[in-house]
Amino acid sequence: MIQVEHIEKKYAKVNALQNISLHVNKGEIFGIIGPDGSGKTTLFRILSTVLLADKGKACINGWDVVKDYRIIRNHIGYMPGRFSLYQDLSVEENLQFFASIFKTSIESNYYLIKDIYQQLEPFKKRRAGALSGGMKQKLALCCALIHKPDLLFLDEPTTGVDPVSRKELWDMLKRLKSEGVTILVSTSYMDEAARCDRIALMMKGKFLIADTPSNIVNQYNEKLWAVSSDAMAKLLIDLKNYPFIKNYYAFGDLHHITMQANSKSDIELQHDLHEYLEKLKHQELFISNIKASIEDCFMALTGGSSDTLHTTKNYE
């Protein structure tokens, strides 16, 4: 459905996209996961034909995004990251407008948006600008869907949306998938990765890895530990100074670490660390071997910090 070969895009001095290649199959939910500024929006704009790439080739359903942009625009739905509806038009008027510019009517594809739109209906006379963040995104999704596109581009649809609405939006995407709609969605919420069929982890304009979420997690070949104590801030510094530390980062309420490879058993490793931290007067120590999440994979791939990522705990 989507074929991207070696796409590059530069803004002044920033390499927004570097040698991006991507294949998305029909009927798939493909997630692009990465922190703000990693190039997700640029990629979405190129694929939705509103931006030209410097190099490379991209095709949607066999149509070239540069040459055949006119045909493509009849078949895709695009929901930009910014709230892009008319604030001074009511919920109903917005939907009506987008239905008509796609030469369709609300009722002909109503079944597609029904579940979400029912929640909006009590407010249908309200101006879009007066809606809450979650409601705005639901309306924007309805507007992007009303012409029943074959392919849906959703650029950070859940940013700034409450957890309940986020879940509803993802349920909606799942149902669209069952209708045969291919979905390319970007997010900076790591926990949403698991809801995609396949994901690509993106950072500084590059894809670090692209695979199914379970394959990515299975590829993680290091021993991961979760650590906590009564003094979490001090703990992170002390972990940093631990002679055998390899990677360390705050992960919600815990710190996640990996250690340099050696021949010691897990029990020994745990015991050594416990001893080291106890000497530094940490109390209520908790050290446990855990299974890696997508975010841990991301950390391992970047070897850096994930402060621009929205971790599982940040929004709850």
Binding site: R73, R82, F83, F98
Partner: peptide, 13 residues
Amino acid sequence: EFGNMEVLLVSPL
């Protein structure tokens, strides 16, 4: 400015 043009462009208009 409000990003509406992006959506209008990605339409058959």
